[in-house]
Nucleic acid binder design. Structure first.
Lengths: 219, 219
DNA sequence: TAGATTGTTAATCGATTAACAATC
DNA sequence: TAGATTGTTAATCGATTAACAATC
């Protein structure tokens, strides 16, 4: 085992999340012609503290030059390598409602290393319909991908989420992003991330509620 | 100031995020006829540990009965009160691309306390078009909401995100959910949450990468 | 009273921040 | 050499987990 894969194993989740932001920011800087950036400048653009940024990057190894900063394209390549986004990853989307259709057509995936390859819906009224270059299929339309890295995206209603996850897992998908407002179970070795848009709004509602209550006390 | 608003002030962000999940889970349980639930059962359904759940709930006060559990509708009401989602909150969506349109039509908001009230896009080709019951306007179509609690949702491309935030803030919006893959700045007192879908996929890609690398070492 | 389950305290764990030595 | 900036160590902070006393 190389030392690179050892270090990869030790990167905390919070750091991984920020690495994706650094990568995106570095790509933007590079496109604007910036070749070298200091931790202070990069942190500013990414919305983090310079000291946290340096700590994160130090987990990957030593890619900066003291007194100078970081080589933008080199650091971007290194982060991309650690994240494993150098090869394009295929994505299967399950659930062709409003959100599923929007994700299927979302422009932002290509540049970040993803290609939507399959669209699945259990509703017979939808299977066979086309969306862009793809045709919606039922679950049988997704081949066994046990030996391939594939990301599953669940955009079904809450009551279809567990079934969607089970079907994806049965076909060998091991990484799933769940947009349904429903906690789902998956076997060991399968990674599930949950994004609940209404939850995000509720967290904001809480802050809104609290800050307006504070205003009333002051006034 | 009441003791309730003091305790509300002390709820950590991580707890607020979980409270929204408990609330959603309690509503589902209630709809299924469950009137009392133990921390163990509720934690199981919500995907957390019972001990963490009790810790979270204890921050709100004492709403359980020892030896029995929690009263489902009462606890739901209490969490809803703390989160401030008892009154319906209006939402303005900026950016009528695929994602913005999907959010505008998303069914899941009503039941969680939100109502999409304004749709905004800076493209003159889109202003005036209708989407469901609403008409897309330019920024001028959003009135001053300084004295109202309103949530702003940014679904523009990356290069329009900061401008969208600035415009929302100028009209008095203090809580913003940003879906654009771009860090944005906002003045003190304005809360911005970031959801980057491609970032979520990249975090999964990292785990995928790592687990497949581990497989190779084993085999 | 006995059994069950909450609410809370203390211990652990992990992440962030601050400070600064290393070094370009 | 002097100035700048990284990489790392130590300190702080906050969140999670475990244990158990309180009590229905």
């Amino acid at each position: 085992m190389s030392s690179a894969s050892v270090s990869r194993r030790d990167v905390p989740d919070a750091t991984v999340a920020r690495l994706t932001v650094y990568l995106r920011t570095l790509r933007t800087l590079h496109a604007a012609g910036t070749l070298v950036v200091s931790s202070e400048e990069l942190a500013e653009a990414a919305g983090v503290r310079p000291t946290g940024l340096r700590k994160d990057l130090s987990l990957l190894g030593s890619y900066g030059v003291r007194g100078v900063g970081y080589d933008v394209p080199r650091l971007a390549d290194e982060i991309s390598r650690v994240l494993g986004t150098q090869r394009e990853l295929p994505v299967v989307i399950v659930g062709m409602g409003n959100l599923g259709r929007a994700l299927a057509q979302y422009r932002g995936f290509d540049s970040r290393g993803f290609a939507v390859r399959w669209l699945v819906d259990s509703d017979p009224a939808l299977t066979g319909t086309r969306l862009g270059a793809l045709t919606v299929t039922d679950y049988a339309g997704l081949p066994d991908v046990t030996d391939e890295p594939v990301i599953g995206v669940v955009a079904t209603p809450a009551d279809g989420a567990q079934g969607a996850v089970d079907s994806l897992v049965a076909r060998g998908v091991r990484s799933i992003l769940n947009f349904a407002p429903q906690h789902v179970e998956a076997p060991e070795g399968v990674e599930v991330r949950q994004v609940d848009i209404a939850t995000e709004l509720q967290i904001l509602a809480f802050h809104e509620h609290r800050s307006r209550a504070a205003d009333e006390v002051v006034s």
